[in-house]
Amino acid sequence: MKLTLHIWRQKSAKEKGAMATYQVDHISPDMSFLEMLDTLNEQLILNSEEPVAFDHDCREGICGACALTVNGVPHGPEAQTTICQLHMRKFNDGDALYVEPWRARAFPVVKDLVVDRSAFDRIMAAGGFVSAHTGGVPDANAILIGKDAADKAMDYAACIGCGACVAACKNSSAMLFVGAKISQYAHLPQGQPERKRRALAMVAKMDEEGFGACTNLYECEAVCPKGISVAGIALMNRDFLRAKLTYVETKTGGA
């Protein structure tokens, strides 16, 4: 296969970027999309040009590192597939492909196709946990969780934190990501004690990081490689509103 690639090149966060055009040849349909980019990079290095920087690691669809928009769709055209698992047999000889980074103020470009997604980590640090310190916890079977609740929690826990939801959203909103974490814990008994605090803290941090607001286009759900449901956003809205209306932080001094 022969392809024309239009790729976003940006030297650093401070400099302006632009699209650059490259030709690649002898692309096997059995290659993954990233292996196709590897081929381009090998070519560039041998020509003494800088290779295209892009994030990737596990290349089996679970680490969430890879983050490319292909022809205007995060992770490319195949549903529920990360770009590392997308194979070139999904494209045709002679195709022209536009490859761009995730675009959001909260995900500034580091270089080329690499963006900084540490905003997600900061949201997690604000409340994406159950406060259980190591040791002193009850036996695992002491907490009964029905299969349905466990499965629901797992549906949301499957999020890989890739940020495709933000990239696809018209408003660069992170609500699917935040909604998924809040919903995972909301479906589990372990998540109940901190439920209100968590919703308030995570949403506040999300707003502070400069993500947009959801306008219910559900584009996030459509591009999510793990098929996370927007029902998680509704649950987050509900929990946040309830917490906003009812939660009062207790401020008692210890002795």
Binding site: W8, R103, N171, G212
Partner: peptide
């Protein structure tokens, strides 16, 4: 929402 995406997709 407009601020959240300062650079548009090509």
């Amino acid at each position: 929402n407009m601020r959240a995406r300062p650079v548009a997709y090509v």
